[in-house]
């Protein structure tokens, strides 16, 4: 078993519904790397692997929300595969954007009441339940507090979303 086998396993494993891949620490531990230059070694490994993966239409991405490295299909392949989990369900996209906005404003937390206000809609509970079931958020049933999970960092290119939003506002 070589480094590529271990890395492929670590980066493509699904630990839970909103945890895919591995952290730098986990990868270095599984490869038993303890030397001084482990960060450089780690970077070289990922760069090397990404060169192998590129022709296959795969890329290595970092999810800054939970510090996990994972493997993603490149843009061309993503267009071919239906990547949008809310295809035909625009209501869920709208609620998710409201949760995202509210969480950015309130240091990662929000509530059903806030979403209801932002969405300008009386009932958002069904959408929240579906988003919770699909792993995008966690709902505290007692306090009705909502917290985004790291899944959004896997499923969405947030940087691209920010750019699209900025451009939309300029229109």
């Amino acid at each position: 078993m070589n480094e590529i086998s271990v890395l492929m396993y670590m980066l493509s494993r699904k630990k839970s519904i909103h945890q895919i891949g591995a952290t730098k620490k986990e990868i270095l531990k599984s490869l038993n790397v303890k030397n001084k230059n482990k960060s450089v070694y780690f970077q070289d490994l990922l760069t090397g692997l990404s060169k192998y993966l590129e022709p296959l239409g795969l890329q290595i991405i970092f999810n800054s929300l939970n510090s996990h490295w994972f493997i993603n299909y490149d843009n061309e392949l993503t267009e071919l595969i239906s990547a949008n989990p809310f295809e035909g369900r625009p209501s869920l996209s709208a609620t998710l954007l409201c949760v995202l906005t509210s969480c950015l404003k309130n240091s990662g937390h929000t509530s059903i009441q806030e979403i209801r206000a932002l969405r300008n809609k009386k009932d958002v509970k069904d959408d929240i339940k579906i988003l919770e079931k699909e792993g995008f958020l966690e709902l505290d049933k007692k306090t009705t507090n909502i917290r985004l999970t790291p899944l959004i960092g896997y499923k969405l290119d947030l940087q691209k979303l920010f750019v699209r939003l900025a451009l939309k506002l300029k229109e």
């Binding site: 492929m8 396993y9 493509s12 494993r13 699904k14 895919i20 795969l58 991405i61 994972f70 493997i71 993603n72 299909y73 392949l77 993503t78 595969i81 990547a83 949008n84 989990p85 809310f86 625009p90 209501s91 996209s93 709208a94 954007l97 896997y154 499923k155 969405l156 290119d157 947030l158 691209k160 979303l161 699209r164 939003l165 939309k168």
Partner: peptide
Amino acid sequence: EDQIFDIFRGCWRKTFHFEPIS
């Protein structure tokens, strides 16, 4: 809702995870 749906267009990602191996 359709305008919001459109904002997300092209921003979705598809993760690669291969479950059979351990």
